[in-house]
Write a protein that binds this DNA or RNA. Structure first.
Length: 270
DNA sequence: AAATTCTCCTGAAGGC
DNA sequence: TGCCTTCAGGAGAATT
């Protein structure tokens, strides 16, 4: 599922193909994604040049002179750049044509979003309340401590909350907590300063390594050029139910938590 | 304000 | 071989 590293991998893969090129057309074959695909895309974008391709959390921001649009990949979305004329396959819901190439969105589960965001995209309702980027200044243990003060919410959903920090989904939340040796069901407000130090560092390391590796490949995620990422083999706990802990050999447990699966080593994580 | 539950969707995997 | 059921999940919206 695309998390921050996968979205950043997509951004880096797409940028050299699309930056500075002019949009020549929009084709929406399936407008019913998480929200209806914004009609403004077809209205405003043809003839405009892509001036920048940015990322905020798991959102990609495409900037043009007349305004910006957002793409969120949901959990099964992927973007690819293809030569014009390649026929769409099942679940290829939308093309944005850039002259001789097409930016194509595929999303079997249709949780993706393609939305117009106007001239100040960071003020869009979906972006304005997002927490700090974990790989940029503004995110550290002190920030987490401040936000966690007094909260009884479990630490795992806490770090998956995009208002606390962006980019951490189920996979990397599990991995970061394992690295930090913290049990996912602990109350966020109960962790001490040292634990938050370890956790902040673990989040940064896990996301950085995943970006270096080119994004985790799981089920539906495909990179912009179609090659899968290869971080999956480096996961310590996610999806390893019943397998031995890489550190102590204790069997990894899986348990439901807030409508998601948590994976943990009951010995290493306290 | 904070916590919890619901919701969208369909492919994959498991059971029989 | 095939049909049915269950699970997976990003994250906003609705509810408590």
């Amino acid at each position: 599922m695309p998390e921050l590293p996968e979205v950043e991998t997509s951004r880096r893969g797409l940028e050299p193909h699309l930056l500075g090129r002019c949009i020549t057309g929009i084709e929406v074959r399936q407008p019913k994604l998480r929200w209806p695909v914004s009609l403004e895309l077809a209205e405003f974008l043809p003839g405009e040049r892509l001036d920048a391709l940015r990322r905020r959390g798991k959102y990609l921001i495409f900037d043009t002179r007349v305004g910006s649009f957002l793409i969120h990949l949901g959990m099964s979305g992927s973007l690819r750049v293809l030569p014009a004329g390649v026929l769409p396959e099942k679940h290829d819901h939308l093309d944005i044509a850039f002259g001789g190439v097409n930016l194509r969105l595929r999303d079997p589960r249709r949780f993706a979003a393609v939305l117009w965001a106007g001239s100040e995209p960071l003020k869009h309702s979906l972006l304005k309340s997002l927490g700090p980027e974990p790989l940029e200044p503004g995110f550290d243990a002190e920030w987490l401590i401040k936000k966690a003060k007094g909260r009884r919410l479990a630490i795992k959903p806490f770090i998956m909350d995009s208002k606390i920090l962006v980019g951490v989904g189920n996979i990397y939340a599990n991995e970061a907590l394992f690295r930090a040796g913290i049990h996912p069901e602990r109350a966020a407000g109960d962790l001490n300063k040292a634990e938050y130090g370890h956790l902040a560092q673990a989040i940064v390391e896990v996301l950085s390594k995943a970006i270096e590796a080119g994004g985790t490949s799981l089920r539906d995620f495909v990179r912009e050029d179609g090659r899968p990422g290869y971080f999956a083999q480096e996961l310590d706990v996610y999806g390893r139910t019943g397998l031995p802990c890489v550190r102590c050999g204790t069997l990894i447990e899986q348990r439901p938590q807030a409508q998601r699966s948590s994976y943990l080593c009951p010995r290493c994580q306290r």
